[in-house]
Structures are given as C-alpha cells and as structure tokens.
C-alpha cells in the first residue's frame, strides 16, 4: 500500500517505467554476469566446494585480501578527508593541477601502478634502497599490498567527500566558533556528522575495490603461498589449472563476503543518518 501512496505523492511521473529500466539494467549489467559464478559452482557439489574454499592457502588469501583492503581503506579515509578539505576550503596556485592528480589512479591501468611501485620499492629502487638500509621491507610483504591498495582507493574517498564538503557552508563553522566551540568541537560536532556518510561511502568503495584488486598488487605482493597470496590470485591460479569450478567457488565466497560487508556498511550509514537528523 505504501508503495502506491509514495507514487501518488511524487511530482514527476514515471515511477513504473524508470523502476522497470532500473531493474532491467541492474539485471543485465550486474546480476546476470555475476550469477554465472553461481551457476559455475553448482555442478561441483557441496563437498568439493567446501574443500576448495577452505583449503589453507585459500583461507590465508581471504584473510590477507580483507585485512590489507581494510587497512588501506582506513588510511585512505583519513588522508582522503584531509585532501578533500584542502581542495575545497583553500585557494592556492596549482590547485587545478592537484585536483586532476587525484583522479590519476582511476585512469591508469593498475598494472602500470604495480610496476611503478615494484620498481620504486625494489632493493635497487629509488626509495627501496634507503628503506633497505633501515631494514624496512615493503616489496613482497603485506605492507607492499597495503601501499598499492592505498593508491588505488584514494580517489574514491576524495571524490565522495568533496561535493558534500562544498555544501557545508563555512558560516556554520563560524557560528560554532562564535558560540564558543573549540576547533576540535567544531570539527567533531559540526563537520564530522555532515561528512561522515560520505566518508563512510568513500572508504567502503575503496575497501571494496581493494578486495578485488589484482593488477597492481600482483607486482608488489611477492605471491608467496600462505604469506602474500591475495584471493584474486588464487582464482587466477585455479583458472590456470583449467579448474573453472574451483575458481568460481573461491570467487563466490569472495563475492558473498564482500556483498554482506557492503550491506552491513549501508545499514550503518542509514542508522548514522537517522541519529543525526
């Protein structure tokens, strides 16, 4: 019933049509291709499926993929917020240039990024040479994976926060200040509640992207079994054994975990919005 009432209240007509298109496109673009993963695993049967997705190497790769993506997303959240803040609130020469730089990780083939990192951090590389002297290892460790994922996820955070921040009027901050709020209070009580949904969305996107990232990570990870093998690599390895079903099984579990995490984060966001409005 509520369904129809809503429709009547809307000024613009065409809910039926646009909803139809939405469902159709979502099916054609997302659901149908992804359902192939599901159908590929069905002939496997239950036991081989469980066996494939709970092999120690596969479990280790899940742990690695999710934890590195999480670290990278958290880091991106902080730095991305700061970058967006600088780009929105201040005027300075070269701002356009900086703004364009933010999008580069989007545009670059990720493999190129991977090669750049691997060269930069290698023991004879520009940065790697110094780091090796201090006994800090980046390349071929989980840290290296996080570095690559930070790069890949960065634009997501900046680009989701920017428009929201632009809408928060500076007068509000000034008003808070006049009413005696400290800087920290202004940030914590006035700005953050406004920005939090965008920050969460941006970080979630970065996180989701990080879980599936292959191209850039593969060059810097080292790919050692049980240590630095990411989940997408396990899928590729299974495909190279012509084990389509096994690859789909690993992919399916990855997909399910990712999807439930995204659902959960969406729920958090909704709850948070209710809290503050």
């Amino acid at each position: 019933m509520e369904f129809f009432q809503r429709k009547r209240r809307n000024i613009l007509p065409g809910f039926g049509l646009s909803m139809g298109y939405t469902v159709f496109y979502l099916s054609a673009i997302v659901i149908v291709p992804l359902s192939m993963i599901f159908f590929n695993t069905i002939p496997m049967g239950w036991e081989p499926f469980i066996h494939a997705v709970t092999a120690p190497r596969v479990l280790a790769s899940y742990r690695l993929s999710f934890s590195t993506a999480l670290f990278a997303a958290l880091f991106d959240g902080g730095v991305g917020l700061l970058t967006a803040w600088v780009l929105v609130r201040y005027q300075f020469p070269g701002k356009q240039f900086l703004d364009a730089l933010v999008d580069l990780p989007f545009a670059l083939p990720t493999a190129v990024a991977g090669i750049c990192f691997a060269t930069l951090y290698s023991p004879v590389g520009w940065l790697g040479e110094t780091l090796t002297k201090w006994n800090i290892e980046i390349i071929n460790t989980p840290t290296g994976i996080v570095v690559a994922l930070i790069f890949i996820g960065f634009p997501f955070v900046v680009r989701t926060i920017q428009p929201v921040l632009e809408e928060v009027e500076q007068e509000i901050e000034e008003a808070a200040q006049c009413l005696g709020a400290t800087r920290w209070q202004t940030f914590r009580k006035i700005l953050l509640p406004h920005l939090f949904p965008a920050l969460l969305t941006g970080s979630t996107l970065a996180f989701a992207r990080g879980i599936g990232e292959y191209g850039s990570v593969i060059f810097i990870a080292g790919n050692l079994p049980m240590k630095t093998e990411i989940a997408p690599l396990m899928i590729m390895a299974k495909l190279d054994q012509f084990d389509y079903a096994g690859a789909s099984a690993v992919a399916l579990v990855l997909l399910l975990i990712s999807f439930s995490m995204l659902l959960l984060l969406n729920a958090v966001q909704e709850w948070q919005q209710k809290e503050y409005r």
């Binding site: 060269t119 290698s122 004879v124 590389g125 390349i139 071929n140 790919n223 050692l224 590729m236």
Partner: peptide
C-alpha cells in the same frame, strides 16, 4: 623470495629490480 605470475615477470624482478 617472490613468485611472479609469469616468466617475463621473474626476468624483470631479477634483471631490473
């Protein structure tokens, strides 16, 4: 210390990096 996905990748790791 590192398992590249292909032979060319290993060559680069060894020769260039």
């Amino acid at each position: 210390p590192v398992l590249d996905t292909g032979a060319r990748g290993s060559t680069m790791t060894f020769a260039q990096r």
